[in-house]
Design a protein around this nucleic acid. Sequence first.
DNA 1: CTGTTAGCGCTTTCAA
DNA 2: TTGAAAGCGCTAACAG
Lengths: 316, 316
Amino acid sequence: MSRSPVLAEVARLAGVSVATASRVLTGRGPASAASRDAVLRVAADVGYVPHPVASRLARGTGTRLLFAVRDSRADILSDPFVTRAATAMAVATEPDGLGVALRRLPLDAAAELDRIAVDRSIAAVVLAGHDSLDTVPIRLRGRLSAIGAGGLDVDSTAGIGALLRHLHAAGRRRIALIGGPSWLAAARVPLRAYTALMRESGLPVRAVVGDFTAVRGRAAARAVLRRWPDTDAIATVSDATALGVLQALNTAGIRVPDDIAVTGFDDIPFAACSHPPLSTATHPVELIAAAAARAALAGEPTSRLFPSHPVLRATA
Amino acid sequence: MSRSPVLAEVARLAGVSVATASRVLTGRGPASAASRDAVLRVAADVGYVPHPVASRLARGTGTRLLFAVRDSRADILSDPFVTRAATAMAVATEPDGLGVALRRLPLDAAAELDRIAVDRSIAAVVLAGHDSLDTVPIRLRGRLSAIGAGGLDVDSTAGIGALLRHLHAAGRRRIALIGGPSWLAAARVPLRAYTALMRESGLPVRAVVGDFTAVRGRAAARAVLRRWPDTDAIATVSDATALGVLQALNTAGIRVPDDIAVTGFDDIPFAACSHPPLSTATHPVELIAAAAARAALAGEPTSRLFPSHPVLRATA
DNA sequence: CTGTTAGCGCTTTCAA
DNA sequence: TTGAAAGCGCTAACAG
C-alpha cells in the first residue's frame, strides 16, 4: 500500500502541469475542456483526495472553525445548546476538511479576541453570547459570524409571543417571566416582547433574571412565588430553566398546569420527558449552527431570524 | 497593523537560524542555553505565534481529530453522549491548534474507514461503537483510539453491579434489564454482569434490547410489563432509556419507586430533573473523551476503565 | 550544538 | 489557456 496520490501525480498522468490540474480541481481559473476532462478522469481513476492542509497553507487560510462562546459560567461549554451547536458545526465543516475548536470567552473578551485574531490556524469564528460585533479586531472582519444578537438567531419575539398568547388564551392573567442573564444583550429581546405584551393586555409585569440553568430555574421559581404568590403561569426562555421550575413547583406541591402553567424554550431532546411533558417552542439549533458556520467561512456577516414554533405538551 | 511575525523573523532577531529557532520553540532537538534564551525572549517580544497549519504540513500530520461514531441510527450525532464527548474533544485539542471533525459510520464501516485512512488532513481518529479494532486499515494504526469495547470505557460491570445490588438490598427481586443494541459488542458487558448477578442471587433473568433512546425505553418498558407483569425494578444502561421508562410507567399509572424502581446510566444533566429524579450512575464522559483524544493523538491504543459511581435520587 | 538545504502539497502570479 | 517558478511557514535530514 503506497502513499496517497498527490496533485503532481494526477497532473503528470493527465499530461498537464500541476497548475492546470489545480485550476481544474479547485474550479478557480480557466481550463480547456480537454484538460478538464483529462484531469478529472485521472483524479477519479487514481482516487485522488486533495490535501486540505497543504491547500489551506498555500491559500493562507486556517484549518479550523472556532466556536467562541462568551459567558460568565465556566461550565457553559457543557450546556446542551452549546454542545448541540458545536456538534452541528463539526458535521457541517467536515466535508471541507475543517475541524471545529471550542473556546469559552469571559465577558470581557477583548484580549482573547486579539489572540484569536493572530492565530493563523483559525479559518473563521462563530461568536455566541456577544453583543456588539463592532469591537472585534479588524483582522477578524470577513471571517466571522454571530449567533444571537443581530446575527443568526431564533425569532424569540415571535416565539415567546406565541407562547404568551397561548397562556393568555388559556385564561392565565398573572404571567411571570424568567429571562436570560442581564449581561446578555440578546436576552433583552424576549424580555421586551414579554413586557410589551403584558402592557398591551393590561397584565402585570413580573420579570426575574435567569441564566439558562435548571438550578437557577428552581431558585427563580421560588422567588416568583414568594414575591407574587398569585402567579398562574411562568414562562421561561430556556428549557433547562423550565425543568428547574417544574421541580420547584413539584416539591412545593403546586400542580402543573392546574395551579401554574409553565413554558420552556428550545425544545431540547428531554423536554418531552419531563413530568408533565414540557410545553415549549422548538428551534432548529442544528440549522442555525450550520448556517453560522457557513456564514463565517463565507465571510458574510449574515443576520437572519429562524422560526420558533410552539410545541404544546402538558405544562401549558 | 502588519502581518503576524513568522519564525524567520524571530530567528533573524535572535541571531540564529530558523532551524535553531524551530528546535527551541518546538522543544525537539538540541539548543544551547544562549540561543534558547535569545529565541524565547525575541519570540515573547514580538508576540510570535506558531502557525500550526504550516507545522503540521511539514510534519506530515493532519490538523483534525476525527470522532467516528459507528451506529445504525442516522441521528446518533445528536445523542447527548456524542455531543458531550465531541465537545470535550474540541476543548481538549484546541490548545494544540487542532479541530475536531465528526462523522457517523454505518455498521459496516470498512469502506468508510479506508476513505478516512487516506485523508491526510486527519491527525487521528477516535472510534466509538466499534467492536473490533483488528479490522481497521493499517494506515490508521498508531493514530487511533477507541471509546468502549476494549478501549477507554466506563466500568459498566461495576457500575451496573452496584445499581443492581442496591436494588436487591432494597428488596427488589424481579429485576428487568433494558440493555443496549445487539450489534454493539460493548453492550454485552453490562448484560453479562446483570445475568451473572441474577443467577448468583437466584433471581429471574428478564433482559430486553434497547438502543439508548427514550422512545425505545418507553416501548421496552411496556414490553417488560406485558411479558413479566410482576416486575418490581427496571434497570437500564442509559439515562435516556430510563427517562422513557419513567414516562411509560407514569402514563400506565404505575408508581415509581413504590411499585417499580428504575435506574439509569450516565447521569446526564437532566437526570436530576425527571419526576421523580432519576437514580443512576455518574460517568466522567468529558474525561473519557479527552483521554481518548490524547490517546489517539499519542498513538497509544489505550485500554482503560473509568469509574462508575451510583447516584441515588428518587427512582430507586 | 548549529546552519544549510530540501522538502510538505498545493496555489497563484507571471510570462508565454 | 497554459506552464514555470515562487512561495505559504515550518520541520528534519545532513554535514559541519
